[in-house]
Design a protein around this nucleic acid. Sequence first.
DNA 1: TTGTACGCGTTATCAT
DNA 2: ATGATAACGCGTACAA
Lengths: 332, 332
Amino acid sequence: MATTIKDIARVAGVSPSTVSRILSNKQTLYSGYATETITRVKQIAEDLNYRKNRSAIELVTKTSQVLGIILSATPTNFAQEIISGIQKEASLHHMDTIIAYAGEDDDALQLQALKTISERSVKGILLLGITLSPTNEHFLRSADIPYIFLSVAQSEPDLHFIASNDFDIGYQATQYLINHGHHDIAFVGANLESCVGHLRLDGYRQALKEHHITYHDDYVIGGNWLYVDGVHAVNILQTQVNLTAILAGSDLVAAGVMNRARQLNRVIPSDLSVMGIDGTLLCDVIYPQLTSIKQSFYEMGVQGTKQIIEKTHIESAYTSISIKDGASVTTH
Amino acid sequence: MATTIKDIARVAGVSPSTVSRILSNKQTLYSGYATETITRVKQIAEDLNYRKNRSAIELVTKTSQVLGIILSATPTNFAQEIISGIQKEASLHHMDTIIAYAGEDDDALQLQALKTISERSVKGILLLGITLSPTNEHFLRSADIPYIFLSVAQSEPDLHFIASNDFDIGYQATQYLINHGHHDIAFVGANLESCVGHLRLDGYRQALKEHHITYHDDYVIGGNWLYVDGVHAVNILQTQVNLTAILAGSDLVAAGVMNRARQLNRVIPSDLSVMGIDGTLLCDVIYPQLTSIKQSFYEMGVQGTKQIIEKTHIESAYTSISIKDGASVTTH
DNA sequence: TTGTACGCGTTATCAT
DNA sequence: ATGATAACGCGTACAA
């Protein structure tokens, strides 16, 4: 049987409310308790090994110090960075976090995660790398809990998000390669059915257009952001003799591209320049170090958390992107 | 104002108990409700946008479907794999998870995380990659909640764990290199002040001993499992002309070793064989692909979760290790 | 400075 | 097949 404030009250010879007020540091609202009472109560609480009962507190206060995080099941390497940002900011405000995993394409799993989180009295919900089905979107809306999407921009205006501008990512990356003298540039490994992939492709095309480079269908090969997609793309692109640069949809794709190209005896970057997207730790670990468009994942977590905690009115925002220099791109 | 069971009861013209029983599918204990009542109540619940209040449920039932996870703050690449295993097994049992982050060397942060978790009525606590300070160890013990450590073996017999046998890891890795004709083998990047590092070093020494190879102090260079530790180690080992193989404390260290060695114009594996420990995704992504001792991280998560959920009596266990073949080791 | 009494939303027990 | 009531542990308005 766990110790309750009543037990402490009985032992201390005071009322439960006294214990409650002392243990939750509410004396300031009143003139204050006698120092003796305070220390005695606290001592007894410790002796009796007292633990707060969060359920009871949340039931009566109807609020909590908990943030809900819903994670896409795909083990994206940058989710960790976003979560770090959330944790950092949350701990600054003495908030805890609950994490629930949702499948990516599985509506039932999404709903399960949504329920798990919304049934607890969380202060807000952060959705990482997720796009909701219409039904689940409705469920989230009707839950009457503040929420914000992280790392994936949403098309509906009332679904707020903190993310990178994916058009800009595609545009700036391509621009960077063009500025380095490249003309025949492939774009590979992105999931072209996703909104993110689509926008990046648009940016890629726009950059080409502005430099009067004809868009070439054969230079675009889709995928699902994975290592194998990079390998696969290089296999297909073998026949393109004019190709001098590849823009990969993610750092992981870039790694696949580089390794497969190397197997085919192409030297990077002298034979082939490769550029990644994300700017994760992976860039520094592979050889040669990868030039990439760096997204501010940590910052997304921080900003999203701030919005939930501090703001009354949540609004969308883009976090900054930058070029992370490596050694995988050379001037052509 | 959120809908409660009472609201539904009023609208449906039944008692709150009826609604409670129907919504939590408890009819089977009784003869069963009229189908008409059941569908009507469920319909009204949906119309009114009813959400369960977990706090109230947990308060009255004094139990929950929640597993607590405490994570070391260091962003280890394999934590993700362990968590996947936990999630998988937990969802099989319809359990949710709460994750709290603890610093590695910061006792206060550790305690904070411990409190966060133990104040909620969790079914059990899984501690990932953590070693507790004596005070916090006592706190955990006195919380009266089942717990188990994952991935880090504990020395005290009543602190149960699921982990790899670190002695075996060091032993088998070294043995593998010796069997490939290597004689001058360095061991680098492990944190030698940690229990894990110490045990792996012991395994390394034992393997050398059994093959009558003299242990060489200069061949052991500590670190903290990081990429830079691998780089640093190679810098120091430059002068060791007889060295033909390096056993890295982790895959990340191995990546540092390989890249630095390459910068020094050593070809891997013909000039230098490199072996990693962990067997993470990184092995496949770097070039040449890394030969490594693979730990069963996913399995640790699964087993730990099973122990908490199914067992009345928790006990320690070692998960299996295996050689993950790559192309970074060659016969000497 | 401290105590009393009530209520949060739900489930369980007992009654009908 | 369904209802009435108590209880879970805590915070807080009000009383003293």
